[in-house]
Write a protein that binds this DNA or RNA. Sequence first.
DNA 1: CTTGCGGATTAGACTCATTCTAACTGATTA
DNA 2: TAATCAGTTAGAATGAGTCTAATCCGCAAG
Lengths: 148, 148
Amino acid sequence: MIQNLTEHDREQLQEALGKSGQKVTPQREAVFTVLLAQRDHPTVDEVFQRAREVMPGLSLATVYNCLETFVGCGLVRQVNHERESTRYCPNLAPHAHFRDKATGRVHDIELPPEVLKSLRSILPPGFDSEVIEISFHGRAQSGEQTSN
Amino acid sequence: MIQNLTEHDREQLQEALGKSGQKVTPQREAVFTVLLAQRDHPTVDEVFQRAREVMPGLSLATVYNCLETFVGCGLVRQVNHERESTRYCPNLAPHAHFRDKATGRVHDIELPPEVLKSLRSILPPGFDSEVIEISFHGRAQSGEQTSN
DNA sequence: CTTGCGGATTAGACTCATTCTAACTGATTA
DNA sequence: TAATCAGTTAGAATGAGTCTAATCCGCAAG
């Protein structure tokens, strides 16, 4: 069910944590593994449930801590929709999110550089943006599977 | 401080509420007035404080109810940023939001139709979006005053 | 070894925006 | 007048997220 990390993924984890002076711990590895295993934008609670299967003693607080750490060192992105629980996404490429009204599922939508650029261009002078979040809300025909 | 509604604004309120079978009440009028008087994307609590000056008996629950009603009949938009308190915005033209890291203030950014169109175009077939939310996060040079 | 240190983890208490509930109000209808 | 019904109200309940204080664990110094 939940595979171990590949060499590559473990290196990515190690490098990102190392850069911000933090260590790879079993808990962090477990949480990261869970994120990569099923790229469906899980909530903290879902991550918690899944990680528990692998590491039963893991606490919710630690899941919060791990995810915060990952966000801090750029390993994962937070996805917020309205005021629902925050979700987490290990896709680092620039992308938008599509929230399916019917299922609640979140799909990643690739964001071509030229669209990103045209978006940036609408900012009046003096506004300097580091982060742009784009989210769609609507219906996806069932069968659509942008699992990422 | 808080002006009364103009004829035009009162009509807008009446029409929007009427369309969804609801009435203009003193509380709703007060809340709407507050929203129009200071277009700084107030939180529920801020609306509550301001409306109280005009209608001291007003309850927080009612402010929640009024705002929900307004959103439901398309009179105002909700603005969410990360997991902070929801803010409200009576600007109905399509626009993005810019959240100033330093001050926490939210500015409206005009959204040209062609940019909106290019955004829609990135959706794969089968995805049909009703709402698009775009929010920037960064720094605005002090002095920038997009109060809307 | 064993001691001490510091970051990581843990359980549980706490916060606070929002939602829910049940009682009340006041206008309108029967 | 009584019944009805949307709207309002105060306060309780919810629940995601944060904080706190105690514990754990790996490691470097003695």
